[in-house]
Amino acid sequence: MTKEYKTIKTELRLPYELAYGATWTRFFEGMKEKKIYGTKCPKCGRVLVPARSFCPRCFVDMGEWIEVSQEGKLVAWCYTNYRYFGMPTEPPFIGAQINLDGTDVNFLHLIGGFDLSNFDEVRKIVKNGMKVRAEWKDDRNAHIMDIRYFKPL
């Protein structure tokens, strides 16, 4: 039998306060009003959501604010059924990439509004390309979770 050696249990907890900046502050204030904002690049013409202060490809300032559609189609998804320390979302849940109508990138959020406990049932409901719409919480805090999830139409 191999000998068991000692271990020490330790934990790190560090406080942070992350700055949103003007663009993301405006985006999250919009969430409070049940609006999803994107910005349009003056150079490549892409509409990015969430809104950005600059285009990651063209490196120019984003001028134009656009309130984007709250409906879109499901591009990719995964059903999560495991847990790790400090996980911010309670499993099971479905993370998804959603292409909101009129935008040029995929927006990451949850798919929900139906029973997630049985995967075989979930598999019958969730289809790539299906239309989904944002469902808002009543109590909103200018946070990404102000949208409860995107629900299949």
Binding site: A76, T80, P88, G95, A96, L108
Partner: peptide, 20 residues
């Protein structure tokens, strides 16, 4: 700010990609 809530570690990212 936007994505950590939905990523679910490495398996979540790669599952979404494989599925797509």
């Amino acid at each position: 700010f936007y994505q950590r809530y939905f990523i679910s570690g490495a398996p979540g990212v790669f599952s979404m990609q494989s599925q797509m």
